[in-house]
Measured scan of single mutants.
Amino acid sequence: TTQFTVHSPEQAEQWKEYAKQKGLEVHVQKKNGTWHVTIH
């Protein structure tokens, strides 16, 4: 599991796309103005 924080919805979307291409599961949670992205 990879977990990191991004600071814009655009970055979060890019990671979603990346994960989809790799066939991975991605979870994005918005918290205090940042987005926590978890890739399984």
Results as ranks from 00 to 15, higher is better:
5 T>H: 09
28 V>H: 01
21 Q>W: 10
13 E>D: 09
19 A>D: 00
21 Q>F: 09
30 K>A: 10
1 T>Y: 14
18 Y>R: 04
19 A>F: 11
28 V>W: 04
39 I>S: 00
40 H>T: 12
9 P>D: 12
17 E>M: 11
8 S>K: 04
20 K>D: 04
9 P>R: 15
23 G>I: 02
25 E>V: 13
21 Q>T: 09
24 L>A: 04
7 H>V: 08
27 H>C: 12
2 T>C: 15
34 T>K: 13
1 T>R: 11
18 Y>P: 00
21 Q>N: 11
24 L>W: 14
15 W>M: 04
27 H>N: 08
23 G>Q: 05
4 F>Q: 02
33 G>K: 05
31 K>N: 09
18 Y>I: 05
8 S>P: 01
3 Q>E: 12
20 K>P: 01
4 F>H: 04
34 T>G: 10
3 Q>I: 11
5 T>Y: 13
36 H>E: 13
31 K>I: 15
20 K>C: 06
38 T>N: 03
3 Q>H: 14
10 E>C: 09
21 Q>Y: 09
4 F>K: 03
18 Y>M: 04
24 L>M: 06
20 K>E: 07
25 E>T: 12
18 Y>Q: 02
23 G>N: 06
15 W>Q: 01
26 V>L: 06
11 Q>V: 12
24 L>H: 04
12 A>C: 06
17 E>G: 04
32 N>E: 08
1 T>C: 15
39 I>A: 01
7 H>Y: 14
37 V>M: 03
33 G>Y: 04
30 K>E: 15
30 K>T: 07
15 W>V: 05
30 K>W: 14
29 Q>I: 14
34 T>F: 13
16 K>H: 05
9 P>W: 15
24 L>I: 06
21 Q>H: 09
17 E>K: 10
7 H>W: 10
11 Q>W: 05
37 V>N: 01
26 V>R: 00
28 V>P: 00
28 V>R: 01
31 K>E: 10
16 K>R: 13
39 I>E: 01
19 A>Q: 01
1 T>H: 09
8 S>D: 06
9 P>Y: 15
36 H>P: 00
18 Y>S: 02
32 N>I: 03
27 H>K: 08
2 T>Y: 15
7 H>C: 14
23 G>E: 04
28 V>E: 01
38 T>I: 12
26 V>T: 03
8 S>C: 07
4 F>P: 02
22 K>A: 11
28 V>M: 04
8 S>L: 05
8 S>R: 04
27 H>G: 03
12 A>D: 01
16 K>D: 03
14 Q>Y: 15
22 K>W: 13
34 T>R: 11
20 K>S: 07
9 P>M: 15
16 K>V: 15
13 E>L: 09
37 V>H: 01
33 G>F: 05
37 V>I: 14
26 V>E: 00
